[in-house]
């Protein structure tokens, strides 16, 4: 019996089996990470009086989207590309203009007494608006707030908003609270 010494099992085909399994998992794997715009819906309207919150006209940034995907901002036609800048300027109101939102002095940690803008974005869309356009508008509005927060965070803490510790993030959030309100749906514009 000369072959008796070489008695270990031939493991050469193990690799083939493992490869087969590997390829199966490679093919079936979907590695997509779910990403998206996170929003919070308002609680259901109890009665009509509750929804009518008294907000001064100068504090509201009105964004309307019609069924032809056109954008009307503060009474004027606008392209989506310009929406972010317009919203930023409105909310920040750097020159304290008459037709832009009022400011209210609020005590905020890290900032002391800060004049917080009372601006609110009001978004209303038609039932015929394309979803892609709606998302583009939402994205631009969220981008406006995020950029304001980033700018403030860099100015005050020297870091971007996302890299700040939790309590500083909260302070920045207090300075620029994201107030995007969606009007109760109406069938405006028709065709």
């Amino acid at each position: 019996m000369a072959r008796r010494e070489n008695s270990d099992i031939n493991a050469g085909s193990m690799a083939d089996i493992a490869f087969l399994l590997l390829i199966f998992f490679l093919v079936t794997t979907t590695m997509d990470v779910d990403t998206g715009l996170t929003r919070r819906l308002p609680p259901p309207a109890q009665n009509q009086d509750d929804t009518e919150v008294d907000v001064k006209k100068r504090n509201i940034f009105v964004v309307l989207v019609n069924s032809k995907n056109q954008l009307q901002v503060q009474g004027e036609l606008m392209q989506i590309e310009n929406l972010k800048e317009a919203c930023k300027e409105f909310v920040a109101n750097p020159n304290d203009l008459e037709n832009m939102p009022e400011k209210e002095e609020i005590e905020i940690p890290y900032f002391g007494l800060y004049r917080v803008s009372k601006g609110v974005v009001s978004l209303q869309n038609d039932r015929g608006t394309e979803y892609g356009t709606y998302i583009a508008v939402q994205d631009a509005l969220i981008a406006a707030y995020n950029e304001l927060r980033d700018e403030l965070a860099v100015k005050r803490f020297g870091k971007k908003y996302d890299n700040l510790p939790e309590d500083q993030q909260e302070a920045v959030r207090d300075v620029f609270p994201q107030r995007i309100s969606e009007a109760e749906p109406k069938n405006i514009g028709g065709n």
Binding site: G36, R39, L41, I135, P185
Partner: peptide
């Protein structure tokens, strides 16, 4: 919009527009 209204009704307020 209809779906969002329905979600508000059932108090499922946290939503995410997948993009």
């Amino acid at each position: 919009t209809d779906v969002k209204q329905e979600l508000r009704e059932v108090q499922a307020l946290k939503i995410n527009y997948s993009t």
